[in-house]
Design a protein around this nucleic acid. Sequence first.
DNA 1: GGAGTGATGACA
DNA 2: GTCATCACTCCA
Length: 191
Amino acid sequence: MRKVLIPLFFNRPTLRVAKELLGKFLVRRIGDKKISGMITEVEAYVGPKDKASHASRLWRGSLASLRGRSGPRAARGRTERTKVMFGKLGYWYVYLIYGMYHCLNIVTEKENYPAAILIRSVENVKGPGRICRKFKIDKKYNEKPASRRMGLWIEDRGVKINPRNILRGKRIGVDYAGKWKDKPWRFFIKS
DNA sequence: GGAGTGATGACA
DNA sequence: GTCATCACTCCA
């Protein structure tokens, strides 16, 4: 059983979609070759208040911004980079981080509401940067739909993860996010 | 623990 | 235009 996930799958609460992505397969076609791997770890970034999210609106007026904080973390809601998170469901959000690595996210929930899920690990590939390196994903996929036609999609191969084997914890690398840094919005399969 | 790397976005 | 920053990885 192989069913490509369609936008409707992503048009639901982000935390729910995040959990259900565990056990699905990320698939990349390059010419005649296919690379695929079961998704084993994800992180949800949900809504304009989520200070850990690139699309957070809450920096305005904060101490950090008064101190002249700049850079990507100074994002103010909808910007050139983050507009994709407000856009169509089931589209990719790909960004470059630390000048070296790409991170792959899928847009969720509903239009005009910034939410996305970071694909953090697939089987045998731990870390968002390594996934994009192995699957040859870069910004060409940003703002493109997850679809077979685009050569990068997610499919259901009938694997069922026992809920008992789904663990959750704090998101990684978001220590700047105040009370939002402790939200248990990272989901992963018990190994 | 520390370096590498360049796009990003606020501010001037 | 300037400048600090970063949802990471590798090597020590």
